[in-house]
Nucleic acid binder design. Structure first.
Ligand SMILES: [Zn+2]
Length: 468
DNA sequence: CGAATTTGACCCGCGC
DNA sequence: GCGCGGGTCAAATTCG
């Protein structure tokens, strides 16, 4: 059907966007490319007075999400003294140039990372799982996964990726050994790649260990609620529907999709409308991509990964929102996470009740009361939550990070506005969040596409959109 | 005609 | 052991 999001993704992110969409586009671009934003903001005010609100929102967002927010600040100050304007503009230009340069660097790094990751994945699957792969081929791949997950499920295994079966399984699982090599990684590069692989491998191991990342045993879920008319969120990935079921207490059916961008990609997603609010569309992502992603898809993937990471990291011990947000997502924390747990978040709890997996929820459906509120996000660890986020650690426990927004933060407003105009906005939001979670703090999204992070075996991101 | 979707059957975990 | 419900498979059907 209309499940193909790729096309729309392009549409969304690229030049096709009509004037009206500028908001979203701006927002998006902000979350992914620094220089464009800066430029846009300036020109926006000067050239498009009618977009005033948009520009304002944009700048707010920038403040909240951006690393390089110098532009914004300067802009606001500028109006004061005419004499200083020129100087400020000079500075502004400089900053913009700098931003551009940095962006380029980031992109390069990202690309390199993607390439390396692919190498790693390939090498790992080949080296560690020759036997398993054979078995895999013999039996169903899915069976394999199930089996493993079952084994791991009972105990919280910190699987060490030693030469063990477990270790091997761990790494190979998400990859599932794609029949067709996704890229250039074979022959000549093997020697050199192996060099890199070792260190990376070690890193991976350590990362996994600390995160309690036993792969399949725990499926982390991240849910985000937003509003959208679209039947499905456009995340830049290609999905194939493989099932549909009627949910229990919900008249709306739940659809199951699987990523088809790569043959072995383990990522799945569920799409369902909220029974209470038909306008709410819930999309759940699970797993990490085992292949490079387009920019648009990267945003989503990163979000998933980041959220999963956060969840899993926190899930190891009793979850304390403050501990998680502070430790794991220093950047995210200030703007997106609140460290207080609120009883008022009951609405989100709805979800959690029957969730069998650790789940993190991002709720974008809340109304944004004061659009004009200049409130800016500060770097306080305990700053009010910009977006409602809740985490459901274990089946029984639901931890809420960010309650419903009591005081609508600027980011939320922006997000909501964007969503209203276009459901795709969710992606932008995701990218922004991801950026922060990844610790980059840099909203720029890797062009090369980020492979689902290998470190996190399973992650689910849920997006709910409500149509307005 | 190949690829994607539909849809009922099937599998599996869980609670009673 | 049985039924229920979530999730997946795969044959049939539809779509481009
Ligand atoms: Zn994928």
């Amino acid at each position: 059907m209309a499940e193909r999001s790729t096309d729309s993704a392009l549409f969304f992110s690229e030049e096709n966007c009509p004037r009206r969409r500028v908001e979203e586009v701006d927002f998006f671009s902000k979350s992914r490319s620094v220089d464009d934003d800066g430029v846009e903001d300036n020109s926006g005010k000067d050239l498009h007075p009618e977009d005033d609100d948009h520009a304002r929102i944009g700048s707010q967002v920038e403040t909240g999400l951006r690393l390089l927010t110098g532009n914004t600040a300067e802009e606001e100050v500028a109006p004061e003294n005419g004499g200083e304007i020129s100087a400020l503009q000079g500075d502004l230009n400089r900053v913009q140039r700098e931003n551009r340069r940095l962006k380029t660097m980031v992109n390069q790094l990202t690309n390199n990372y993607s390439v390396l990751y692919n190498h790693l994945v390939l090498a790992t699957s080949q080296q560690k799982t020759p036997d398993l792969n054979r078995q895999l081929q013999a039996s169903k791949k899915d069976d394999m996964i199930t089996t493993i997950s079952k084994n791991n499920r009972n105990k919280s295994p910190d699987t060490n990726i030693s030469g063990d079966d477990n270790g091997a399984t761990t790494l190979s699982l998400p990859i599932k050994r794609p029949p067709l090599p996704i890229d250039h990684r074979s022959g000549p590069s093997s020697p050199s790649s192996s060099k890199f692989l070792k260190p990376i491998d070690e890193k991976l191991e350590s990362t996994m260990d600390q995160g309690s990342i036993d792969l399949p045993c725990r499926k982390a879920r991240v849910s985000v609620r937003a509003r959208s008319e679209a039947p499905m969120i456009n995340d830049g990935c290609q999905w194939r529907k493989y099932g549909q079921k009627m949910a229990k207490g919900n008249p709306c059916p739940r659809a199951y999709y699987r990523c088809t961008m790569a043959s072995g990609c383990p990522v799945r997603k569920q799409v369902q409308r909220c029974s209470e609010d038909a306008t709410v569309l819930i999309t759940t992502y699970e797993g990490n991509h085992s292949h490079p992603l387009p920019q648009t898809a990267t945003a989503m993937a990163n979000t998933t990964t980041a959220a999963a990471t956060m969840l899993l990291a926190g899930s190891t011990t009793s979850i304390n929102s403050s501990s998680i947000s502070t430790k794991d997502m220093p950047l995210l924390n200030p703007s997106f996470l609140s460290s207080s747990v609120d009883p008022y978040t009951s609405s989100m709890a709805t979800f959690s009740a029957s969730v069998p997996f650790p789940t993190i929820t991002l709720d974008l459906t809340k109304p944004l009361p004061n659009p004009t509120q200049p409130q800016r996000l500060q770097q306080h660890p305990s700053s009010p939550f910009a977006m409602p986020i809740s985490m459901y650690n274990k089946p029984g426990n639901a931890v809420h990070f960010a309650q419903q927004m009591r005081q609508p933060p600027s980011v939320v407003e922006t997000v909501t506005a964007a969503i209203k105009s276009d459901p795709n906005f969710t992606v932008a939001l995701a990218s922004a969040i991801t950026s922060y979670m990844n610790g980059g703090g840099s909203p720029t999204i890797p062009p090369g596409g980020t492979p689902g992070s290998p470190q996190f075996p399973q992650s689910c991101t849920t997006f709910s959109n409500s149509t307005n």
